[in-house]
């Protein structure tokens, strides 16, 4: 976490400059399972993008290009809605030793 500011350094009224408090609040750490997008299976129907409650499906030129893992909370809606099973939910365990 960044160093906390003292009271003299805070913006008036507690506003968050930039207007996107969400951008500063990385909710990706809430995730227990991560959606892994499989480009080969994807038909670019954009259903995942429509349904994602956290705008965490990244699209460029109207095409899905990946997942914003800084904000994706791992709800799995994208995987559930995908008509081609192109998104797998994978446990988030880092460096797991599971056999």
């Amino acid at each position: 976490m960044a160093e906390l500011k003292g009271w003299k350094d805070l913006p008036i009224g507690g506003v968050v400059p930039g207007g996107v408090a969400a951008a500063l609040n990385k909710t990706g750490s809430w995730r227990a399972e991560r959606p892994v997008w499989n480009e080969e299976k994807c038909i670019q129907c954009l259903q995942c993008w429509f349904h994602c409650p956290d705008t965490s499906i990244v699209i460029r030129d109207q095409k899905v290009t990946g997942v914003d893992y800084d904000h994706c909370k791992g709800c799995g809606v994208c995987a559930a809605i995908c008509p081609k099973d192109a998104i797998d939910m994978v446990p988030e365990r880092e460096g797991t030793c599971a056999k």
Binding site: G6, W7, P11, G14, V15, V16, G19, V20
Partner: peptide
């Protein structure tokens, strides 16, 4: 052109400083 977020959440790490201000 200069967007800000008004009325955000402030947890124990910031509420006190904002009240002091």
């Amino acid at each position: 052109d200069k967007p800000v977020t008004w009325g955000p959440f402030a947890m124990p790490d910031y509420y006190f400083e904002l009240k002091r201000a």
